[in-house]
């Protein structure tokens, strides 16, 4: 009888922990950056009177969103600097050179979250932003996060904007002239479950 009781208790414990474990796994959803339905674009002041727009065409990333424990969520984004596109091939070629992005030395622009905090309508994500070989901590306010299921695939979307000063990331001060120091980066991305 005693052994039956012990075995039953053990079985309940195992089942409970297993169930809790499954719940935890289900709560953290993984998403891959959906290149087709996303964009990373930027704009910078020209002569302080207008904006020049551009985008990066090759981006990858991964999000892990834990709805129950948002602090365990993670966000990572990698932009291939070589894919800069301002709708002018000559300017793009110039931007890839060492006076600007120096894409042969610094091929990627990266963001990796270090802490995540839920806010009304999204997440406040603190992380390391690396551009031009310099890493600085930034805070992204990701708005969105509502999940949709289409054809069995989970889809989640976020939007954010951030302002970065090129001078903070080691760009040559001489290359900051008619183009303003501050650039706005706009990220609109969808993540899709693998």
């Amino acid at each position: 009888m005693r052994s039956f009781f012990a075995a039953s208790t053990l079985a309940i414990l195992v089942a409970t922990s297993s169930l809790l474990g499954n719940q935890s796994c289900q709560a953290a959803d993984e998403y891959d950056y959906d290149l087709v339905h996303s964009s990373v674009s930027f704009k910078a002041r020209h002569l302080d009177i207008s904006w020049i727009h551009g985008r990066f065409n090759e981006v990858s990333g991964k999000f892990v969103i834990d709805r129950d424990q948002p602090a365990k969520s993670t966000f990572a984004l990698t932009i291939k600097a070589d894919s800069v596109d301002t709708a002018n091939a000559a300017r793009d070629k110039h931007l890839r050179q060492p006076d600007y992005f120096d894409t042969k030395q610094y091929p990627t622009i990266e963001f990796k979250s270090t802490s995540v905090k839920p806010i009304d309508g999204g997440f406040e994500v603190t992380g390391d932003f690396t551009m031009h070989g310099t890493t600085r901590e930034i805070v992204l306010v990701l708005m969105g996060g509502e999940e949709h299921v289409i054809k069995g695939k989970k889809i989640v979307a976020f939007s954010t904007e951030l302002a970065v000063k090129r001078s903070d990331y080691g760009f040559d001060p001489k290359a900051i002239g008619a183009i303003g120091d501050t650039a706005m980066i706009m990220i609109d991305c969808e993540g899709v479950s693998p």
């Binding site: 020209h46 002569l47 207008s50 000559a90 300017r91 110039h94 002239g177 008619a178 183009i179």
Partner: peptide, 22 residues
């Protein structure tokens, strides 16, 4: 062929009117 148009059309979307830009 490639860079001069960026300078000469500085009033459009290209930066290079006087110098430190593209």
């Amino acid at each position: 062929r490639e860079m001069a148009p960026l300078i000469s059309h500085a009033s459009s979307a290209c930066p290079l009117p006087t110098g430190d830009d593209t």
